[in-house]
Write a protein that binds this DNA or RNA. Structure first.
Lengths: 233, 233
DNA sequence: GCTTTTGTTTAGACGTATCTAAATCATGTT
DNA sequence: AACATGATTTAGATACGTCTAAACAAAAGC
């Protein structure tokens, strides 16, 4: 089995690698909160173990096995997050740190039982998709980042990614949760976007980097033939 | 904070040490499934950290701090066992291994929430007392080991300690659970005790070492002034 | 009381995960 | 094309948790 630390590296690399660009040493080091030499040593061992493709100075890319490992941890993490909110009264700002620790220590049996208890949910409390037991993940294609929306766009929040507890709390206090309807009222030229939150009727201004982590999809109301305007803008 | 491995050593020493006899190196090694030199090294580090009193060749004894550490882990373990049975459908034979891993990775917050959810329970699924949040443990004084009962004793099962999953499953299949009423019908001279299980009306024979882990108390029915006969036999 | 046995400790080693300091590679600039 | 800059890797160290083999202490046996 894969050690807890290795699982953390798998997660980081999974998030950092891109179709064309591998995860670079410095990026992984920053994500993991360690120094670059530590990452180099780790990547070398992980390459020996067949978890990543690694060539020195060229960064790392997950192998098939490495990706499965990453998805297993992601599955545990997201099921835990939902479990903690549903069964133990956590709110979406609190769950992340707890899940980050526990995700490495769940037996297969326990994960299964949690999944059954929750009714095989599709997404976690942040709207992120939960990999299935056979480690398939279905990315939602009908959503876009709030940062990419133009003025006038009306959309509902469908996912809030990788944000700190502070930011998540702030958003919750501002009336933002999954399903909240927003209208983009202004995009300022200095990296700020302002929307109106439908539930509170209040405007909310966010820096682009925060908005970039908020994903939205077109509202449920419009009929099939009206969708296009939000997707192809 | 105390490392997971150290917590496991604390647990072992807690179980092994006695009022007058400290936990000896070989005992700890057997309990932990490691070789004696490993234990020696660990005890030396733990002594440096103020967790045990240790003098070479004389075994180890928990300090105040060490005992608090052990009780914290015990508390986590037992709350988890109960949580897993109550909320996730585990039975008493399955919970131990899962709890043994998770017990080291619960935040204070999570433990509190589990305890609240369970309604501040006094005992775990095996009847073992759960240390309170301020790490006090109240050993039950009104119970005795089944192995020490004489023929004719009628008593109810109040605790089943430190048994393997196999043994626990066997006992459950034999109708033994917390609250089951037993009558000791025979104590054989070769280390075996036979009782009749009241719920199944069937006799059950157990080797003394298994019976020694089953604790019983006098039945609930008798009035206050009749108790004595069971306690002072 | 000496010796054997048993249990314990020391010595030396290895794998994991980390660090700092120094060497090396890759690249963008001039 | 040479150089300077920045990222990456190597080298060497430390802490943890484990091992085997060898030295040593304590208890038991004669």
């Amino acid at each position: 089995m894969v050690a807890p630390k290795v699982e953390d590296y798998l997660k980081s690399i999974y998030r950092l690698q891109d179709r064309d660009t591998p995860a670079m040493t410095a990026e992984v080091a920053a994500a993991m909160g360690v120094k670059p030499p530590t990452v180099t040593a780790m990547l070398q061992r992980m390459a020996d173990d067949g978890l990543v493709h690694y060539q020195r100075y060229q960064g790392a890319r997950l192998t098939e096995r490495g990706e499965k490992g990453a998805l297993k941890v992601l599955r545990n993490h997201r099921l835990l997050e939902l479990f903690l909110t549903e069964e133990l009264g956590y709110d979406w700002a609190e769950v992340h740190d707890e899940a980050d620790v526990l995700e490495h220590h769940l037996s297969v049996t326990l994960v299964e039982r949690i999944e059954v208890l929750l009714g095989s949910p599709a997404v976690d409390p942040h709207g992120e998709p939960i990999p299935t037991a056979d480690l398939e993940i279905r990315e939602c294609e009908t959503q876009q980042s709030l940062a990419e929306c133009q003025e006038g766009t009306v959309a509902v929040v469908s996912e809030v990614r990788e944000s700190s507890a502070d930011v998540l709390s702030y958003l919750a206090n501002s009336g933002i949760s999954l399903g909240t309807e927003l209208e983009v009222v202004e995009t300022a030229p200095f990296g700020m976007i302002t929307c109106e939150v439908r539930t509170t009727e209040k405007p909310l201004s966010l820096p682009t980097d925060v908005a970039a982590e908020i994903y939205v999809s077109r509202p449920a109301e419009p009929a099939e033939n009206e969708r296009r305007q939000y997707n192809e803008a």
